[in-house]
Design a binder for these strands. Structure first.
Length: 161
DNA sequence: GCCAACGTTGGC
DNA sequence: GCCAACGTTGGC
């Protein structure tokens, strides 16, 4: 099983939106970066786990954990001229973009980007690399374990009071 | 809103 | 195949 990090703008789809969806599952579509696509297409398998990261918002950071709930399938928005994700070069015979379904595992207290940057064990994390913009990226097992351990105590809202 | 970093496009 | 110009991402 592999670990991933997936970025979403909470104004578009937040962890709360995933939790509120039928079967707590949403389609992950709109990825228009080849590297991110290739990770989804070639690396992701149903059952993999992903950190759900809120980006482009007041406090960016990890907001929950989701499970990959399907294999990769063609992203329908690429064929829809009305969609902001429309790609005129994609064809039904040769789709260019794919998506997967993700299911909420749990929401966590926000583990902020600011805090992530202070953790020595995460110094080499891809998310934290200078200029990193990938919306889907692998997470090393040791990074996953480090982050999980940090997410746990944060589930207790009164712990620091 | 600014801007650094990165990805894509297209002329040559 | 190079590379300048442009577009996008995303933190601040």
């Amino acid at each position: 099983m592999a670990y991933w990090l997936m970025k979403s703008e909470p104004d578009e789809v937040s962890i709360d939106d995933v939790l509120a969806a039928p079967r707590q599952t949403v389609g992950w579509f709109g990825v228009r970066n080849y590297q991110a696509r290739n990770f989804m297409r070639d690396g992701m398998r149903a059952g993999d786990l992903a950190l759900f990261y809120h980006s482009s918002c007041a406090e960016p950071g990890i907001a929950g954990i989701v499970e990959i709930a399907s294999g990769a399938y063609p992203d329908a928005t690429q064929f829809d001229p009305a969609s902001q994700y429309y790609d005129p070069k994609a064809t039904l015979e040769q789709p260019r973009w794919i998506g997967v379904d993700v299911r909420a595992v749990r929401k966590t207290a926000l583990l902020s980007l600011k805090r992530l940057r202070t953790i020595a064990a995460l110094a080499d994390m891809r998310l934290l690399a200078k200029g990193s913009r990938l919306s889907v990226m692998p997470v090393e097992p040791h990074e996953w374990r480090t982050i999980e351990a940090l997410l746990e105590p944060l589930l207790e809202p009164l712990l620091e009071q």
